[in-house]
């Protein structure tokens, strides 16, 4: 992936200015202090925000994003939240969603409203992983997870074999993902 001269601002506030980065690594971690533009960069990579200028090359066309907030639908259970973003027959969707949720140690039929923050995070991760895409954009995917869960989630992300851009504050998370770190200031 190669990013050249990327600039973006919200009104008067410049978030990214002539940002450049290049990596051949399959998994990239964006690190930096709060407010440095990690989430903004992920949203630009996802196509949600349009940069003022700059180019991004080498990123697959179809991308799946896990937002910084869980953005789950509270009236649906874990399985239904994942199935919502899937195509195919009901049977296929149930098989895919149940499989991925069980891998992440989540009861597929569990009510979202009774879940802890860490559980909701894993459902959001399951949705991003299950979605039919060629790349993952994950915004703080391990927020609220303990060390063991973080490592098992990182392993599952690695095993998908998809290129991923992950924002994080933790070097340990970057290491667990085997990612190259790009620092934002």
């Amino acid at each position: 992936m190669r990013i050249e001269n990327l600039s973006f601002s919200f009104g008067q506030k410049q978030i990214l200015k002539d940002f450049n980065a290049q990596s051949d690594s399959k998994i990239i971690c964006l690190m930096g202090p709060s407010g440095c533009g990690k989430t903004t960069l992920l949203r630009i990579l996802a196509g949600i925000l349009k940069p003022e200028c700059g180019t991004i090359t080498g990123l697959p066309e179809s991308r799946s994003i896990m937002f910084q907030e869980d953005r789950l639908l509270p009236h649906l259970n874990a399985r239904e939240n994942v199935e919502l973003v899937l195509d195919g027959t009901d049977e296929e969707k149930a098989k895919t969603s149940t499989g991925i949720l069980k891998q992440l140690d989540i009861d597929p039929e569990m009510d979202i409203n009774t879940m802890s923050g860490g559980m909701k995070r894993r459902v959001a991760l399951a949705r991003a992983l299950a979605f039919n895409s060629d790349a993952l954009l994950l915004d703080e995917p391990f927020k609220g997870l303990d060390q063991d869960l973080m490592e098992s989630c990182a392993r599952i992300i690695r095993e998908t074999g998809k290129p991923a851009v992950v924002s994080t504050h933790s070097e340990a998370e970057a290491q667990a993902l085997g990612a190259e770190i790009i620092h934002l200031r």
């Binding site: 949600i48 799946s64 994003i65 953005r71 639908l73």
Partner: peptide
């Protein structure tokens, strides 16, 4: 609006 954005991102 966050849910709207989610729906767009996942091409619902």
């Amino acid at each position: 609006r966050d849910l709207d954005e989610m729906a767009t991102a996942y091409r619902l």
